[in-house]
Write a protein that binds this DNA or RNA. Sequence first.
DNA 1: CGAGAGTCCTGAAGGC
DNA 2: TGCCTTCAGGACTCTC
Length: 285
Amino acid sequence: MPELPEVETTRLGLLPHVRGQRIERVTVRERRLRWPIPANFTDLLQGTTVSNIIRRGKYLLWDCERGSSAINHKHEGMDSGFMLSHLGMSGTLRVLSSATPVAKHDHVDIEFANKVLIRFNDPRRFGAMLWIAGRDMVHPLLDVLGPEPLSEAFTAQHLFKASRGRSVSIKEFIMNGHVVVGVGNIYAAESLFRAGIHPQRAAGKTSLLRYEKLVDAIRETLQDALRAGGTTLRNYVKTDGEQGYFQLDAAVYGRNGDACRICGTPIRLMVQGQRSTYFCPRCQH
DNA sequence: CGAGAGTCCTGAAGGC
DNA sequence: TGCCTTCAGGACTCTC
């Protein structure tokens, strides 16, 4: 269940192994992900050099450059572009060595000139691997995204203005990627608790002052998780991606019936927008 | 346009 | 022990 901190940690774990490396071979065993992997995906990627990996929300954008000399005739006419990957619910991208045996749900392999193997495993297949042609990173999935929560563009003013006239609950509002990216179910609940805001409060009737608290809370919550994720980076090559949420010490998530750490009131569970929400009925208004 | 439900998928967990 | 049902969850896509 990767959210922004997990995706960013994945990016940082991958980067030193693939940056500046040429893709020698791509193997697709299962194309049926969130959307089908394009038929020419293998040809598009092979022979390119990954110059960087950029994160946008929970998407990773692999900058794949193709030299103009067109040494490989098979790929003549093909251009540079970005490989877009998303981990979905259950996806992992691991750094392995070439000969690692294939396991269940190992859908895609990307092998580099330095013998590094990046392997995408995704049991639930909610993840994605797509291609964005050209140098401009223009894609319908990216064009609609809200600001990065850790950027200066993410402000209380932005949330306040975007929420006017909206009747959705504040929790569903901040989980909407068009409003702000990277805030999933767990971090939404944790952030609202930290800000003292009831998850059912109407987004459109939430004051600027509350949004100021919420912006701070989201930043702090994500940064705490990123810090915890940093500790898993050291042995990233060995990790199987199952380390979960960095042993995040959740204040409310998954703690239904347990005592609130602030006031002792039992944490409550409810369903909002087909998602479970945990909150403290006394601390959050 | 916004709100709300539906959809994809597998593995884990719960009931009997 | 084992089968069956339910649920979880990101985020697009559909319907109204």
